[in-house]
Computed example of a mutant assay.
Amino acid sequence: MTQSSSRRDFLKQTTAFSAGLALSGWAGSAFATTSLNNPLFEISLAEWSLHRALKGGKLDNLDFAKVTKEEFGINAVEYVNQFFKDKARDKKYLAEMNQRAADVGVKNLLIMIDGEGALGDPDPKKRTQAIKNHHQWVEAAKTLGCHSIRVNARSNGSYKEQQKLAADGLRRLTNFAAKYGINVLVENHGGLSSNGAWLAGVMKMVNLPGCGTLPDFGNFVLDRKTGEEYDRYKGVKELMPYAKAVSAKTHEFDKDGNEIKTDYVKMMKIVLDAGYHGYVGIEYEGKKLDEYAGIKASKKLLLKVREELTPEEAVAPQAVECCEPGRRRIFRRRRLFRR
């Protein structure tokens, strides 16, 4: 056999193996992601991580993308509306945000929306007004090239009443956002929304592809007065089937760089086991480290966890040569990783 014919046969086998991966559903698995030399997940930065600098006038919203890239080496951002609250319809300002992000090679992912009313308000007029208040942010997200806005599912009433009310507001807002190709994501953010089962139930009621969740690793406080918390691992597991973004909340770190309240290896296994390989957004809220140091510590932790969870067997497809023994071997390795 000539060298050229061997190369052709090799390429055919590689192509066939790759096609087999796609048909077998491996395209969304952790192995398929790493076998293509892509990381298990990407890292982004939530603007709230710098809220003290922003509120204190030490940082301007327009410089957020630049600081994200130059200070932290992160290429994607998640904005918070309160840092440009009066600019939702300011086309010139939004264009400047776009330009500054583009200048440093940063991708705009989403806008976190607060202070625009309760989407599950029991008063029909107030609920409708809250929905309308969010419209401008859907349009702003579209202008910025984001894929989503993050909202809250705040309401009042009994468990089931609040589910129905929140689902109504979210369904109507999601239908509006669909016209712009924007998703509406709900974060566990206090009250019943911090109950994973409750919020998952809301998602089932809405039942629209454009409505999903943004699980936050730390926002599972059910009652701030008593300190009662929902199990964060159970909650994230319940919300991940609907997740289109993930918030890696950090507060304090031990001497080894691990987050003291959240087992990040355990948590990220839950995220990856759900088939999620998108952006994981750093949201640092600690006080012992300053914001810049806290963000860097958070990134270091995520990189360490990503490396630990990446299987050593994540090699190029040609290593298995499309043979049955090799494929069986990879299936065994993948099961070990997913366990």
Results as ranks from 00 to 15, higher is better:
M1K: 09
Q3Y: 14
L11G: 05
Q13A: 14
T15A: 15
A19E: 14
S24H: 08
S29W: 03
S29E: 01
T34R: 12
T34W: 00
L40Q: 00
F41D: 01
E42T: 13
S44E: 09
E47L: 08
E47Q: 15
S49I: 10
A53C: 12
L54A: 02
K58P: 10
D63I: 09
A65Q: 00
K69A: 14
I74D: 00
A76C: 12
N81K: 04
Q82F: 15
D86N: 15
K87F: 02
D90Y: 10
K91C: 00
K92R: 08
A95P: 03
E96P: 07
M97T: 07
R100S: 07
I111A: 02
M112A: 09
E116A: 01
K125S: 10
K126V: 07
R127W: 09
H135M: 09
E139F: 04
H147N: 13
I149T: 02
N152H: 13
E161R: 10
Q163A: 11
G169W: 05
R171L: 07
F176Q: 08
K179G: 09
V184R: 03
G191T: 06
W198S: 09
L199T: 05
A200Q: 09
M205C: 00
P209T: 06
G212A: 03
T213Y: 07
L214G: 01
L214S: 04
D216Y: 08
D216N: 14
F217K: 07
F220Q: 01
F220L: 05
T226A: 03
E228H: 12
Y230K: 06
Y233F: 13
K234R: 15
G235S: 08
Y242N: 04
K244A: 12
A245R: 05
T250S: 14
D256V: 05
E259K: 09
E259R: 06
K261E: 14
K261N: 13
T262F: 03
V265L: 10
K266V: 12
I270V: 12
G278M: 08
Y284S: 02
E285F: 05
E291W: 01
G294V: 09
G294A: 07
I295T: 01
K296Q: 15
L301N: 07
L303Y: 03
E307F: 00
E308S: 13
L309R: 10
P317W: 05
V320P: 02
E321F: 13
C323W: 04
E324F: 08
P325Y: 03
R329V: 08
R335E: 15
